[in-house]
Simulated assay, not measured.
Amino acid sequence: MPPTTGLTIIVPFYNEEESLPLLFDQIYRALEERELQALLGQSPLFELLMIDDGSSDGSADVVRRQAAVRDEVKLISFQKNFGKTAALAAGFRYATGEYVVTMDADLQDDPFAIRELIMKLQDGYDLVSGWKRERRDPLSKTIPSWLFNTTTRLFTGIALHDFNCGLKAYRRGVVKSLELHGEMHRYIPVLASWNGYRVTEIPVRHHSRKHGLTKFGASRMFPGLFDFFTVLFITRYLRQPMHFFGMLSLLSFVVGFGISCYVTVEKIFFDQAAGNRPILFLGILLIILAVQFFAIGLLGEMLIRDTSRTSGYMVKEMVNVEEGGIVNSDW
């Protein structure tokens, strides 16, 4: 469907009751800038899509009060906490803007950077990521973040300093093309670049957290690591899994066959015992693994032609959200 608003701002939140009132104030003040309104040039100007990721405090009530007096404020509440990736996936699905901006609800992202992000989009880019060049976070967040960004930049070849910044701007086509699951919100620039979109970044202001505690923890690092390998695989071999598993199969077979030939030659020409040598079992194991890798690659080729897709989240409530031209107040 074509865009019906100039801008969609997507804000996932989880237990941010204290931060949300000030966040609304900051966003509305940022959207009053004449330069930003000139960039959008569409009526209605914007929508504010708030995604409640299963909050257990009064966060959703704060948004409901705003939605009751402001039609552009829309709420999607999840049945439980599904994570940021699911929240962004829901926001992308229901976004109606020509441009889409995502930002966190903890007041650390600066809404006044929206104008610069959209201006950069109009320079011909499809996704513009914020770069928190001066981070206002403790070492427990900055060090893992630096390791993550350095590793991702090294393995993907995408020259971004801050892949996981919550403040990003997209053209509509980008968000509608993304398929997110797991913890893949960290790798959105990688997925967009793989789809052929132009990706860049600009420095943005970063503020210290004012209320509550960070939702970041060590438990998030391992799922993120596994998703990193998933992204590397799907961005290179998703459509041709046999190229990956076939390469492993060929390597394993060549080494295993070479070992078996070596043991055979020693047995025939040098009368060396073969039946109880560990190197013989290694050769046999590698040949078996080669067959298994080949079978996995073949199954992968078959599966990608018949893949079922699920949303990865369950919606409990929707307020002022349009789907198929119908406004849902409860769903």
Rank of each mutant, 00 (worst) to 15 (best):
Asp162Ala: 06
Arg171Thr: 11
Ala169Met: 10
Gly173Trp: 05
His161Gly: 15
Pro189Asp: 01
Arg186Ile: 03
Pro144Thr: 07
Leu180Ile: 09
Leu147Pro: 07
Phe148Ala: 09
Ile188Arg: 01
Gly166Leu: 05
Leu147Lys: 09
Thr150Ile: 10
Lys176Phe: 08
Arg186Thr: 05
Asn149Trp: 02
His181Ile: 12
His161Asp: 15
Lys168Leu: 05
Lys176Asp: 11
Leu178His: 06
Arg171Cys: 07
Val175Pro: 02
Trp146Pro: 08
Thr151Val: 14
Asn164Ser: 15
Asn164Glu: 09
Glu183Met: 13
Ala159Arg: 14
Thr151Asn: 10
Glu183His: 13
Arg153Met: 11
Leu154Asp: 08
Met184Gly: 03
Thr150Leu: 13
Asn149Glu: 04
Tyr170Ala: 04
Thr152Gln: 00
Asn164Thr: 11
Tyr187Pro: 00
Ser145Tyr: 09
His161Pro: 09
Leu154Ala: 14
Tyr187Arg: 00
Ile158Glu: 01
Asn164Gln: 12
Pro144Gln: 08
Val190Tyr: 03
Phe155Ser: 05
Val175Cys: 03
Asn149Leu: 03
Ile143His: 12
Phe148Thr: 07
Met184Cys: 10
Tyr170Met: 05
Gly173Ser: 11
Leu178Pro: 03
Tyr170Arg: 03
Glu183Thr: 15
His181Asp: 15
Phe163Ser: 01
His185Ala: 11
